[in-house]
Amino acid sequence: MDEARNSRSRISRRGSSRHGSGARLWLAGGWLLLALLAAIFAPLVAPQDPLAQDLMFERLPPFWMSGSEPGFWLGTDSLGRDLLSRLIFGARIAFIVAFAAALAACLVGSTLGLISGYFGGWADRIISRIVDVWMAFPPVLFAILLVAVLGTGLSSVIIAIAVIDWTRFCRVIRAESMGQARMDYVENARIAGYGRIGIMLREVLPNVVPSIMALLSLEMGIAVIVEAILSFVNLSISTDDPTWGGIIAEGRLSIHQAWWVLVFPLVTLILTVLSFSQFGEGLKARFDPVLR
């Protein structure tokens, strides 16, 4: 009896958005903060030089297995480079790409989506048609094509992701602004003498900001994946700087001798991507006054 009541209250508590979003927000935010700090202070926190090769130390296992060496916590790859240090330095590129690409996509997509949804009419028709055409391209193929044209390098990866993914913002924000534009408070603001652009920015925008934040966070996760995919197919950063995708590609080659070179970067990648999407959802739940 008591047991049943307890479990029911636990379920209902988890179901309520406040508590659910709280735990989600803190766990995901915690991991992201940790990864971000590691990225920023990489030279200070990385135990080894991520590029230093040492054939004496090749394919060392992680610290809890026999044959491991102190100072190489997650082991080494087939060239004897410290895996943890490479992951930490790889986080730098991952976060730079995540922030820059997602912000660019967000700025372009949200602006066009807001205009399209609020003004409607021919502005909406033109923007929606462009989005339709854009989305007809398979995204990964599109990215590879773009990078092939722009040339490899950090900035072309960022541009490619922004160019492809602004449509995600545009579609969602368009639909939401369209719903808001039909609300009576928008009409009320017009009666009170506000101009169209003023209403768009003052009345409609605040109502779509929670969604913009959620999408932005989700997009950062997606940018991390796309960057990893491009690195994996060797189309990302052409220098020796370690990237998560590049480490995964190398790890795949030595999976039978050193599984950790594949597994740790994969886990890091998945944790980061999940955290971005959960963090976004949590933010939305927290900042949406209606959901709150």
Binding site: M183, D184, Y185, E187, N188, R190, I191, A192, G193, G195, E203, P206, N207, V209, D288, P289, V290
Partner: peptide, 24 residues
């Protein structure tokens, strides 16, 4: 026209929920 209507008229709407901006 907007200015005139804004200064001299007002609306009491049918649905008081959607007539207020939910996020302000």
């Amino acid at each position: 026209r907007r200015t005139l209507i804004g200064a001299r008229t007002a609306l009491i709407p049918q649905d008081p929920l959607t007539a207020l901006n939910p996020s302000r």
